[in-house]
Computed example of a mutant assay.
Amino acid sequence: MARFDDRKSETPADCEGFSRRDFVRTLGAGVLGASVPWIGLPAWAADAKPSKDRPSPSDLSETAVARFYKTLNKTQRETICFPFDHNLRTVVKNNWSIVKPTIKDLDKEQQALCREIMKNLCSEEGYERFMKQMKDDSGGFNAYHVAVFGEPETDKPFEWVLTGRHDTLRVDGDSVAGSAFGGPIFYGHAAGGRDEEDAKHTANVWWHQGELANDIFKTLDDKQKARALVDDAEDDDQKTISLKGAKLPPTGLAIADLDGQQKAMTTKLVDAMLRMFREVDAAEVRHCLEAAGGVDKLRITFFKEGDIDDDGVWDIWKLEGPAFSWYFRGSPHVHAWLNVARPA
């Protein structure tokens, strides 16, 4: 894969911030309680055992989290560590600081461990894309924030969460039973620091996913296009990826109504997203998806709103099923929300 252009970005006002001060101020008002629901309790509570189709505490990222946790002194633990059942763990946002300190504020060993965790959380291609995105959006990986929930050096549930501009990513060793990635995640990119990207999303590390989605739209006949295309986009918000189960609305076009080639293109689209993560997380998503009926149970929707340059290449779209919700907003730049679970 070609190397990406490393240009430092600005911090536009469209992306919502969330500081530790905001957290302290809003917790009493119950704001954080309105996090995205997903299926699952701590795996220990559910008596679930790790398997090959989901992470385990012995995986590379998870063991690095345990080593990172052991290096934290008392002051650091008071600042970035929380009980596993803390409300803050379930939050997903497009731009927020889960804790005030950045990775840069940690010592050199701890910085290296955070990078090791991140590197093992991704595929080789995904790591390169994330590093390019973080460089553009915030000046680099060390500008991001990490928090630890639970006790990763024990047999109790835990989760490591990374946040910052255009990222909410997790490592949990399957501590949250029934939930891929340990809960909803977010990734995005404002290529080259441009808040408003051009219609081709030049240099955006995630737009290849948008191109694949639009390739599916091009194969639809007129009646299918009419069903798949709606006027108003959904909110750029965590609530958009709440899992609806049997109450999934009949919005958009059912993948079950497509032909074999189009279904294969849908699988290719999902694979393009999964290819940026480590194989064990990708395997868990595939397992969750198959358990909920596979791609035939998904629906794809394209939105006229936000069509950059009115070129008919749909920048905003959604792929959703009973236990799968992927909302891709490519306008004015890419925001992608993802929530996947195993059916209850």
Rank of each mutant, 00 (worst) to 15 (best):
N204K: 10
A66F: 13
D136E: 10
S61E: 15
W337T: 03
G173D: 03
K135D: 14
V99T: 07
E320F: 09
D85C: 05
R25V: 03
H208V: 11
P249Q: 11
K156G: 13
V280D: 03
F68G: 00
G17P: 00
G245W: 11
A344Y: 06
T251L: 07
V91N: 00
L269H: 12
V146K: 13
N204W: 11
P184L: 03
E109H: 14
L41F: 10
D215M: 11
D235V: 15
H287A: 02
G40Q: 02
C15G: 05
P184S: 06
T267L: 08
D235W: 11
G293Q: 01
S138E: 13
D6G: 06
S35I: 04
V176Q: 04
L32S: 03
N214A: 09
A226I: 01
D137I: 10
I216S: 03
G210K: 04
C81F: 12
F130N: 03
N142R: 15
T63R: 05
E116V: 07
P332F: 01
A323E: 13
D271Q: 14
K225R: 14
E109V: 14
R194A: 12
A203F: 13
F277A: 04
A341D: 01
P83T: 12
S9F: 03
E78T: 15
D167F: 15
A34E: 05
Q261K: 15
R342M: 04
R21D: 05
G164S: 09
A46R: 09
G188H: 10
E159W: 08
N214S: 10
K225Q: 10
Q209R: 11
I241N: 01
E16Q: 05
D221M: 07
G164E: 08
H166I: 14
N339R: 00
D195Y: 15
S51H: 14
A282Y: 07
K225G: 11
A256V: 13
G306E: 10
P55L: 03
R25L: 02
S97M: 03
R329G: 08
R275C: 09
A264S: 11
E151I: 15
G293Y: 02
F84L: 01
S19C: 01
V91D: 02
F303Y: 07
G30M: 00
K318Y: 14
S97N: 08
G28C: 00
F324M: 02
L169R: 09
A180R: 00
K247T: 15
V334I: 02
D137C: 12
C122W: 09
F217Y: 08
A341W: 02
